[in-house]
Nucleic acid binder design. Structure first.
Ligand SMILES: [Mn+2]
Ligand SMILES: [Mn+2]
Ligand SMILES: [Zn+2]
Ligand SMILES: [Zn+2]
Lengths: 130, 130
DNA sequence: TCAACACTTTAGAATCATTCTAAACTGATA
DNA sequence: TATCAGTTTAGAATGATTCTAAAGTGTTGA
């Protein structure tokens, strides 16, 4: 709890009640993939009612500070990922199912990068069925 | 034009004026990535005004019939891809920039697929900068 | 300790891509 | 050519997200 406050301060984020609760949930040691909605629901289960606006604000604040990654897997909700290491995903759109692939993956056979561009990140999504 | 009509019929799609125009544009031999909006704009340049509702309907009809692939690269617009072969992409979110990677890419080092799931498709997105 | 102020939170409105509704239209068929 | 299922469309609705602006709070210097 004081760790969380320090943690937030060290990321130039004022440790407000809401941010402490959200960080406490997100960074509890277990990697998580959340949407604004799912996060809101989880916090509500724990009797922490935080407005959706604040949840969006906080997710973005954390993202801007590199505490979260952002995943665009579906067109109609954004996932935030507490695992900030380089990694990939198994994903089932149908089942809203998302699992980290932390193993080292190699992508072979890429053509040369387009002129004047630089590779920022290679993202591998393994879409699952049934 | 009659080819287009046949093409549509052979896909169980009634060859309406609108579908003929849209198919004529999309399947002209050049691979394309379009959004509903960009397609609408391109058609408008060619003096073909088709309602957005129809453009959405048609993109979905084509998609359902396997004539298009759907790409979820950004959270706030869906891309449709006229290249229906298995392939991957270079993508620049900032520049709305999208290039096919048709070369055979191999992804090595995947962990084993989660129990009771099947790999449907492996998607590689090479995010570009600069 | 506390005033002062920048930073935050929040309800509710706004945005915007997409989907839906239901009425008018049209391609296919006999 | 009449009929009807399939299509198109304007406009309303939806839903995730962002914005607005007013009220609340953490920080800091005296
Ligand atoms: Mn949406
Ligand atoms: Mn949106
Ligand atoms: Zn992850
Ligand atoms: Zn493509």
């Amino acid at each position: 709890m004081n760790d969380i406050k320090q943690f937030l301060r060290s990321n130039a984020l004022r440790p407000t009640k809401q941010r402490i609760v959200i960080a406490g949930y997100l960074f509890d040691g277990t990697d998580k993939h959340v949407t604004a909605e799912s996060l809101s629901t989880e916090l509500a289960k724990r009797k922490h009612i935080i407005s959706l606006a604040t949840i969006y604000n906080t997710l973005h604040d954390f993202y801007e500070n590199g505490l979260l990654k952002k995943l665009t897997l579906s067109a109609d909700r954004v996932y935030f990922d507490t695992n900030t290491n380089d990694h990939h995903h198994f994903y089932s759109e149908k089942e809203q199912f998302l699992i980290d692939i932390n193993k080292n993956i190699k992508v072979n056979g890429l053509p040369k990068t387009p002129k004047n561009k630089k590779i920022n990140k290679i993202e591998v999504i393994v879409h699952l069925d049934k």
